[in-house]
Simulated assay, not measured.
Amino acid sequence: MRPQWTELPEAVKRAVEALVGGGGRVDACADGFSPGFAVRVTRADGHRRFVKGIDADAWPHEVDAYRTEARIGAALPPAVPAPRLRGVHDDGHWCVLAFDDVDGRSPGRPWTRLDIHRVVGAIGDLARTATPAPVPLPADHPRLGGWSDLAADPSRVSRLRRYEPEAAADLRRLAGLERQGLGAARGESLVHGDLYPHNILLTGDRVVFVDWPHARRGSPVIDLVTFLSSVAADGLDPEPFLPEDAPETVTAIRPDDVTAILAAHAGFLLAGGLAEPLPGLENITAAKLHLGLGAFRWLRTRL
């Protein structure tokens, strides 16, 4: 669904060239779910930037994420494994962000054991270097919780019953668990909040986390649970990858709290994945359902 470079208004192309310091070869990036454009621009001198942008008039509810990412990206210190933000163009109609390009690859699917261990280690490193959070961030967690909303919607309950009848029959207990999870999610670490495969890049010696609009202040267990839910969605058992040598900020939390945060995360995903998709955002809804079913399968084993 991404617009192609050739489809962009000339004014947007000129803005991109200004952000990267000139024109050059433009290569489209296919990963991700945003309806905005995403390209790598390589100048004649070999210098390269990653550029993303969105039409605020066409996607008024999506552009806020870009503007939030611009604010957070500008504040992230170099120790955080994220690409550096190099420039922003926002004329009220288009919001465009330019970053250092990361010469890496998206994780292979399904996950491999080596890649899983690398990412778990990077989450631990982030917890060590970003506790307390080095940037001011909200402490709420809008991407956790959803069982109560789901239970109040008969159409979503009916859809859930087709996929996971056990969950549909146990909504009261799941809603109680997610309330515990919201409490357990409190903390003072920098949390990415969206650590799925499309927001992870692997280089020869680094793991880089991209797309930070959902960053919050909280427990690093949130990122661990989010990431390992994608492992579960690929049909793998996440339990062997729970780190034994994690930083104190991770290991200090009780196993019951890990389960509760997982319940809150599964609730968020399934409440969104079982909702009627918004036009143009159907792939996001489908991805939430896929990840949510994986998270619930993992939750069921922990219960």
Rank of each mutant, 00 (worst) to 15 (best):
D234L: 05
F227H: 07
G273K: 00
H61G: 11
A263F: 07
A56C: 12
P247F: 08
G36T: 09
L195M: 10
G124W: 06
E7Q: 14
A151M: 07
I116H: 01
F241Q: 05
Y196N: 12
G294S: 08
R162F: 08
A266I: 08
G21V: 09
G73H: 09
R71D: 13
P60N: 12
L303I: 14
R113E: 15
A184Y: 10
L270W: 07
A287V: 08
A168I: 11
A167C: 10
H290I: 10
L150G: 09
L126A: 14
D100R: 00
G181W: 06
D153I: 07
T301F: 03
R105H: 12
S148P: 02
L201T: 08
G36D: 06
R156D: 05
T301G: 03
A252F: 03
A275I: 07
R161H: 15
A11G: 01
A133V: 11
L201R: 05
A30H: 11
V102L: 00
A38V: 06
T259Y: 01
S106C: 02
A139Q: 10
P142C: 12
A152E: 14
V207L: 00
R71T: 15
A169H: 10
D149I: 05
L195A: 06
L171P: 07
Y196T: 15
G124V: 09
Q4W: 05
E282P: 01
R40Y: 11
G204A: 14
V63R: 00
R43C: 04
R254W: 11
P77A: 12
R300E: 15
D31M: 03
V225H: 01
V41T: 04
T131S: 12
L201K: 02
D64E: 15
L177R: 03
P255F: 13
R14Q: 14
F209A: 09
H47V: 15
A15S: 12
A79D: 13
V41G: 01
V207E: 01
D115R: 00
W111V: 09
L303P: 02
R2W: 02
R2G: 03
P60I: 12
P154C: 08
R156T: 11
Y163S: 12
I253H: 04
H290C: 04
G92T: 13
S158A: 15
L195I: 14
R40H: 10
R217T: 15
H89M: 03
H89P: 04
Y163A: 13
V258C: 01
D223C: 06
A127N: 03
D234N: 06
